[in-house]
Design a protein around this nucleic acid. Structure first.
Lengths: 206, 206
DNA sequence: GAAATATTGTTAATTTAATCACAGTTTAGG
DNA sequence: CCTAAACTGTGATTAAATTAACAATATTTC
């Protein structure tokens, strides 16, 4: 089990590495990768050490191999199925954003309570009524949910999620959710991020 | 200058506290606040210690006072102006999301290169051509930019941002941006978050 | 009003994450 | 083939963040 921060960075490295591959770059040095990601060469090497990959000395890391090793760590072999819960502006944005990107994570359903959205195909993904959550999650073997419902229904919906057998949640709601201990959850709050930027802008002024 | 994580948590506490106020709750204990935020009472007390607020012993923290103290720390007196750069799905979602929320941060302009969007009012905010960035930023005293442009134009746009005098950036692009050292930047990458959730779901299985 | 209880504020200890420092390799240049 | 230069891999160290531990204080109960 890798440190959270290392997992994040590996995901980011992979994106850069894929870019390198497209540009025909076959090898990359730790300091180059570091430069691309606001961090240090040592940090990059340490992260790569965690996943047990070693380069050919002096040539840098083999881009293609490193991509594969990171894939072995991050990806599940058969891929994982993902659902977006709440088809508002943000839900739609995220869905369209992900569709056609990385292939091991498939958004295969969205859910909403709005009857005008139900059964329609939005951004290439079918929208189901929230009442069918458990049924569809089981049938389609969905293990991850992206929560983009309004704040006032968030905690109720999260109960249903856990109930339906979801194993991981990415919560974009402003409400911190309570989930069962075996469910992994990551919360992201845009307002907090913006307020943080504002704070540091403010304090830099002095 | 507070630790980053403390700043984040203060922002989150404030949200809960405002909620408490609405519900007529006038005092709150550290362990109550902790429960609402997946963390411990000690952590809450430590965070509050950082901002130098002390409660009446045994009564818990005065909700209204605490909100004010957090406001003194996080908010700028006259507020800060914010622009959204890139009016795609995500940009629109974020704009509508923020409009009408917290009042000390005002989204007052959006920018895009798409001529069909320019000069239109989207989610209540006017869209300007990117070419007028510097002019508008100066005129309207905008200090924070939210980046939601496509990956391939991200680094070019970020140069323009720094050039225009922006002091803080919230980057939703998948590309890590290079900014001047006096510009504060926070990067958030949804793909990374989702891959992180997937990793921990995967490893929990074993 | 004394004892028991609940809660805060803070020092100390622990854990986690990042950085330093350097030995070990490989390559390049003479 | 020898020396210098360029990188990697990793033990040791430092720094940052979290948690534990507990004294101090206010409130309640009897």
């Amino acid at each position: 089990m890798l440190p959270e921060r290392t997992v994040e960075r590996l995901s980011e490295y992979r994106r850069s590495l894929l870019q390198c591959l497209e540009e025909g770059k076959t090898h990359i040095f730790s300091h180059e990768l570091a430069e691309l990601h606001h961090n240090t060469a040592v940090q990059v090497r340490r992260d790569i050490m965690f996943i047990g990959y070693t380069s050919m000395q002096r040539k840098g890391y083999d881009v293609r191999e490193l991509i594969n090793v990171i894939g072995d760590i991050l990806d599940s072999e058969q891929g994982l199925n993902v659902a977006v819960i709440g088809v508002g502006n943000l839900g739609r944005a995220i869905t369209t954003y992900f569709i056609g990107k990385r292939s091991k994570l498939n958004i295969i359903a969205t859910f909403d309570v709005d009857t005008t959205k139900i059964d329609r195909v939005i951004s290439g993904v079918k929208c189901y009524p929230l009442s069918r959550l458990k049924e569809i999650v089981e049938k389609e073997d969905i293990s991850i949910a992206i929560m983009t419902v309004p704040a006032d229904s968030a905690s109720e919906v999260s109960t249903q999620l856990v109930d339906s057998g979801i194993k991981g949640v990415l919560n974009f709601t402003t409400v911190p959710l309570q989930v069962a201990p075996d469910v992994y959850m990551d919360e992201y709050d845009m307002i907090t991020s913006l307020e943080k930027v504002a704070y540091f802008v403010k304090t830099a002024r002095t």
